[in-house]
Every structure is written in C-alpha cells, then in structure tokens.
Amino acid sequence: MKPFLLSKIVPPAALLVLLSFLLAGSSLAAAQKPGVFETIDVELDVVASAALGSFEDYWSPSAGGRLELSSPFYAGVIRAGGHLFDNGSSSEDVPSFVGLWGYLGWSYEWPLPGRFAWSAGLQTGVMYMDFDEEAVPEARQDETELGFALDSRIRYAFAGSWSFVVTGEYRVILTDREIEYVFGGVGLSRTFATPKWLREFLE
C-alpha cells in the first residue's frame, strides 16, 4: 500500500468532510430553501483559465464561456453544464485544441450575511478535445477523457431572481499525464420555477 493514503488523502478529505458537517449544521436551521427540483437556475459565466504542471509548458488555456443549469437536490444543489475554452499551443510542434468540459456536479450552499451565499462542491465530467489543425491526422483530431473538479462560488442575489456569481475551480483531467487547470469566473444567473411536468419527471 502506498503511503499517500494516510499522508495526503485522508487528512484533507477528513478535514473537508468535517468542515462541511459543521457549516452545514450551522446553516440548516437558518436556511429557507426551495424543495427538490422546485427551481432551475440558468447561469452564464465568463471564465479565465490557467494551467499547472507540465501542461503549461506546451499550452496556454484562454478565457472561455460556461453555461450551467442547476437545481436544488435532495441535499445541496445538482449542476450540469458545459465549459468551452481554447488551449493555444506555445510551440509549433504541438497542435492547439478547443476543450469542451461537459460535467455533472454537486455542491452545498451556505447562506452568508446580506444576500450572499457561498457554495462548494465537486464535479465529474468528460473533456472533449478537438484538434482541428491540418497537421493532425483525421483519426486523431478529437479525444475525450474523464476528469474531476472541485469548485467554489460566491453568489449575490439582486433584482429578485437574478444573481451575480464569482466562481473558482480546480480541475484534473485523467490523461496518462494529468492535465491540471485552475479557473476563475464571473457570471449572471437567473432562477426559474420548474414546470410541473418537468419536476414530476425529475423527482
């Protein structure tokens, strides 16, 4: 068994879970939350990107856009969305590619003073990579790989159903040599009441 199990994973995971428990416990009583699938939030973000590790030696991710749908779940919030961004090559020897991150996520939101709320959660999804360059053989012009991400966001509700959102995210794509990204974004979201037929379908 490798030592990382004890030294690197269990302590941070345990701390995260403990922190979630404490914060969730303190917020439960105060929160007046919508029921499961009672509302749907549509969010549009502009997202800035940075790469970590050896990936940044070859590519520079650019700013991109993200569209996300979210809804209250049995606990927390369930999210689904897509994030489109370009990965420009920093060398002529390697091709640039467009990345589309399609994901499913879950997060928990805690109300803060005023109209603020803070949420933290995780995502899993697949990264579709489109190498649309002439030098790349046709059979290898796209690639799909599994990934995971941790995200956090601060939401400020204004004008009834509208919210302003600031997000941060750390994402790992499980290629043989992992790709690590860090993202920061700002966006707007609007809350809609879920149509009855859709709510019945989802529940």
Partner: peptide, 10 residues
C-alpha cells in the same frame, strides 16, 4: 482514463 490526450504530440 489514461489516454495521452494532447500529450500525444509531445
């Protein structure tokens, strides 16, 4: 998981 992804060109 474990594809080379974009590293296939490196």
């Amino acid at each position: 998981s474990g594809d080379p992804g974009p590293y296939a060109y490196t």
